[in-house]
């Protein structure tokens, strides 16, 4: 017998939101330093328990290094909290940055579709 649980029915799954962010900076931000800063600033604002409760996830496969765009997943009620924690980032590895949100979507597919021209590598 396989050691794997069955996929939950869609009505049993928790709702998700995908928030698309853009990094505005004079210098290029590397993936590793970005992910480190995103987690640091989010934990700094809402704490470890808060992050755990928001179902927070960095969607690394949707990261576009060229256009400096990344996507975060969270619960619908915590979108504004995530937006605020990203807005508080002013510096990544001593590089001045400003992070702005481009939009919020309900699925990865619609995130790709809506921001297709942006997310396409």
């Amino acid at each position: 017998m396989k050691d794997k649980i069955k996929t939950l029915p869609s009505s049993y799954r928790e709702k998700k939101r995908y928030v698309v962010f853009e990094i505005i900076s004079d210098q290029k931000i590397e993936f590793e330093e970005l992910i480190k800063s995103v987690f640091n600033y989010t934990i700094n604002l809402i704490g470890i328990l808060g992050v755990a409760k928001t179902n927070f996830r960095f969607m690394s496969d949707l990261y576009n290094e060229k256009k400096q765009i990344f996507v975060l997943r969270c619960l619908p009620k915590d979108v504004e909290l995530i937006r605020l924690s990203m807005a508080l980032i002013t510096e990544i590895n001593e590089k001045n940055v400003c992070i702005r949100s481009l939009g919020v979507t309900g699925t990865i597919k619609s995130a790709r579709r809506k921001y297709l021209d942006i997310l396409k590598t």
Binding site: I24, E80, L81, R83, L84, A87, T90, N96, C98
Partner: peptide
């Protein structure tokens, strides 16, 4: 006081929302 401290409208609104105001 510098260009990197400017924030968009939604980001500014998120602060008041997180401080307890309605959306």
């Amino acid at each position: 006081k510098n260009i990197f401290e400017l924030r968009s409208g939604r980001e500014l609104s998120s602060l008041s929302f997180c401080s307890g105001a309605s959306m």
